[in-house]
Nucleic acid binder design. Structure first.
Lengths: 119, 119
DNA sequence: CTTGAATCTGACACTGACGTCAACTTTTAC
DNA sequence: GTAAAAGTTGACGTCAGTGTCAGATTCAAG
């Protein structure tokens, strides 16, 4: 699978896919001519990367985290070391705060929307 | 209350407070010399602004939304019009998706953290 | 009146994921 | 073999909120 197809079937731009490779999040075999060749597993991986970006993790954190996660076609290739675990624990706390904040903001929007539909 | 005090007691930088004013999110009376004078209500307002920023709304959305919310010292000065309601509904849907995504990512982190503490 | 702390405006820098364009090469289709 | 389509690298631009610095002004205290 080449980059165009992967882009189409994940909805992620080619630019982003090359960026992911540059950041060490995604790898690809190369054709003799230098074109990227992706496996089917890349689709799930790209989706997962997007998910983690959306959760506010930066490239370097994702790069360290990915090898510790069970992939669609394999067991995790690594276990998180002590340092990574402490980083991830911090991220998890941040995510928890973020969820709480989003729920509050959602409630605020609800109030305004409801007030408009009533009044 | 001047800008330094407001910054200290909200934890938001003076730079950001001036930016909020520039974006129409926060207003202040001025002393004869031009220094900003904030009321007590500004503290709650700044916290609310930060909350909405954290929920991913941009300045212009927040600017339109704020007058429709009940403030600590007052009833909403406006009701959202049809256009704003539809924008807010879109934002609410985005927030809902974001919460779901965060919960998924949180679960992923949990799995990795737990695997490390077990194995 | 003077001094120092606080504030003012305006401009430029940064971050990080990604858009976009240029110039070139590889692959694909006929 | 040739043209079109797809891919390559590299560089620079964007956005939005904020950091930071410079130079000028105002405020509070002695």
């Amino acid at each position: 699978m080449r980059i165009g197809e992967l882009a189409r079937c994940t909805g992620v731009s080619e630019r982003s896919l090359r960026y992911y490779e540059q950041e060490g999040l995604l790898s690809a075999r190369r054709t003799p001519g230098g074109h990227r060749e992706y496996t089917e597993a890349a689709v799930a991986r790209v989706r997962r990367i997007q998910e983690l970006y959306a959760a506010g993790l930066c490239s370097s954190k994702i790069a360290k985290l990915l090898p510790c996660m069970r992939d669609s076609d394999g067991r995790p290739s690594r276990t998180a070391d002590e340092c990574l675990v402490s980083e991830l624990t911090v991220e998890r706390a941040r995510i928890d705060r973020m969820i709480r904040d989003l729920q509050r903001s959602r409630a605020l929007l609800d109030t305004v929307i409801e007030a408009a539909s009533q009044g």
